[in-house]
Computed example of a mutant assay.
Amino acid sequence: MQAIEILERLVGFPSVVGTPNGEIVGWIRHYLQRHGIVVTEIAGPEGDRSNLFVTIGPRETPGYILSGHMDVVPATEGGWSSDPFRLRAETDRLYGRGTTDMKGFLAVVLAAVPALAAAQLRRPIHLALSYDEEAGCRGVPHMIARLPELCAPPLGAIIGEPSGMRAIRAHKGKAAARLTVRGRSGHSSRPDRGLNAIHAMTDILVCASAEAERLAQGPFEHVFEPPYSSLQVGTLKGGQAVNIIPDSCEAEFEARAISGIDPATLLAPLRTMADALRQRGFQSEWRELSAYPALSLAADAPLARLLGELTGVEPLAAVSYGTEAGLFQRAGIDAIICGPGDIARAHRPDEFILANELLACQAMIEALARRCIA
Rank of each mutant, 00 (worst) to 15 (best):
V140G: 01
C361G: 04
A369M: 13
V223A: 14
G238W: 05
A251N: 02
R88K: 13
I336C: 07
I42R: 07
L127W: 10
R182N: 15
A115M: 03
T100N: 15
T265D: 11
E252P: 07
R34N: 15
E90T: 10
S189R: 04
G36Q: 10
T76K: 15
I4D: 08
R93C: 13
E133N: 07
G44D: 07
A276I: 12
L359E: 15
P62T: 05
E133S: 13
L155S: 07
R59I: 08
T235R: 12
G173Q: 02
L7K: 10
A276Q: 15
G96P: 00
A197K: 01
S82K: 10
C249S: 09
C137G: 15
D83L: 04
L116R: 01
G57W: 03
I343Q: 02
G104L: 11
D192S: 15
A118M: 08
A152Y: 10
G160Q: 02
A3R: 13
S81T: 13
G218K: 05
F224R: 04
A268K: 09
A325G: 07
A177D: 10
Y31Q: 14
L129V: 00
F328H: 11
C151N: 06
C207I: 12
P114V: 05
G218M: 07
R34F: 10
D71W: 03
D300G: 03
A276W: 02
E41F: 08
A301P: 03
A255T: 01
R29N: 03
K174P: 00
L116C: 12
S259L: 07
W80G: 00
C372Q: 12
R49Q: 10
I198F: 06
G238K: 00
P340Y: 02
A325K: 05
A176R: 13
G18P: 05
A117T: 08
V73K: 07
L359P: 03
P302Q: 13
I343A: 10
M102P: 01
E324T: 00
Y292H: 14
F352T: 13
G104S: 12
M165I: 09
E252V: 11
G260S: 09
P62M: 02
R166W: 05
S248E: 03
A294I: 00
S130D: 11
R193A: 14
F105D: 10
V17N: 13
G36D: 13
R88C: 04
P114E: 06
L32C: 07
A294E: 00
D275I: 00
G332Q: 01
L94V: 09
Y64E: 06
I261E: 10
S259Y: 03
G239S: 10
L289I: 04
S259M: 05
S259C: 12
L147N: 12
L368V: 04
Q362T: 02
A170Y: 00
I37H: 15
R49E: 10
A197R: 07
G136H: 13
A115N: 11
L368H: 14
L94G: 14
R214I: 06
L236F: 14
F105I: 02
